[in-house]
Design a protein around this nucleic acid. Sequence first.
DNA 1: GCGGAAGTTCAAGGAGCCTTGAACCCCTTG
DNA 2: CAAGGGGTTCAAGGCTCCTTGAACTTCCGC
Lengths: 193, 193
Amino acid sequence: MPAKGYSWSDAPRLAAPDPAPGLPRWEALAIDAVGNVIEFWGFKHNQGRVWAVLYLRGTSMTATQLEEELGLSKGAVSMLVRDLERWGVVVRIRQPGTGAWHFRAETDLVQMVRRVIQERETAFITRIRADLEEARRLAAASGVGRERLARLEKLAALAVGAERALRIFLRTARVDLSTLLVALGEGKLRSRT
Amino acid sequence: MPAKGYSWSDAPRLAAPDPAPGLPRWEALAIDAVGNVIEFWGFKHNQGRVWAVLYLRGTSMTATQLEEELGLSKGAVSMLVRDLERWGVVVRIRQPGTGAWHFRAETDLVQMVRRVIQERETAFITRIRADLEEARRLAAASGVGRERLARLEKLAALAVGAERALRIFLRTARVDLSTLLVALGEGKLRSRT
DNA sequence: GCGGAAGTTCAAGGAGCCTTGAACCCCTTG
DNA sequence: CAAGGGGTTCAAGGCTCCTTGAACTTCCGC
């Protein structure tokens, strides 16, 4: 349900399919699809793309490889993998023989997204509810007419309802996706690293 | 679940409570709360604020009043009410005796949000699914290794799952909020216009 | 019809987020 | 221990979306 840079009025424009120079089209398509989804949920487009290449390849990759494959700058890759690492969806390993780090995708991207969403959304709606309740209190204290008070209360009720709907969604999403997560996990990366 | 200008990393910062000069604090609080919610769902913060004042006041207001109360420019108000009108959550009425339009809030903001979300999200996820399927087709055609194909298929499965979860959410949200909508409606605006 | 207030449109300006690129640091290897 | 690739950081720039402000149009009332 969210949206970021996803406008209601005109064309929905998803990120251009071009920016991946040397990638086979199918891979670029899949990678960008993940990027779009991730962006949709409030993360950065390129965080999704990085995870996606790593996941699709199955092997581990160096920062330099990521730069080349995705057409990103050195600095960008550094920051992106740092985030992904922090969230535990990518691990960093030191390859013997080479002086470079290698990165590998964990399969729990979805879990991570759900967790973050949950925290974020819950905090948000809680805040809204608090504000509306505060408003109601202040309004009541300053002797606002009963009609207006009634309206305020209805708004507050809406917030409560929204919170419940959200909770239900997160629960069903968990149940619903957990089956898929199992599936994702069982092909368990036999990464030829 | 969406987010717009709602970052994961640092402080969640909601819009500053200041920009409403002459409004009593409770009103400003409530109005901004609505603004934040609406923005969260991908609309403009000020679209929410405009609807909110109109709703809370119960009376109809002129564009000039809206400008003053919310601290917006003439042009902004014009465009904002135009959008709200188009969505049917605000109606424009001509007041006899005055040469100015008056605006009044309809109570179906929530319905409107749900409808727009539904269209938008559905289109989005459908597009993602299509892309992933296309990717899979192309990959299969160009003889990609079975391991990679398997990963791609898992991604596609995820998209399908997400779509289902979304549909469930929209349904529960409708059921869940319809009760509230009834409540909202029955205090039916006795607008002293 | 005219005068003028109300409303609309749109180019220019502003704000926020993301990425780049270069300076800096670290750490391995020879 | 010196050399140099790899990684990190961060200020500057780019981009996108939103708002402003002013020219332009519309419409009411006299």
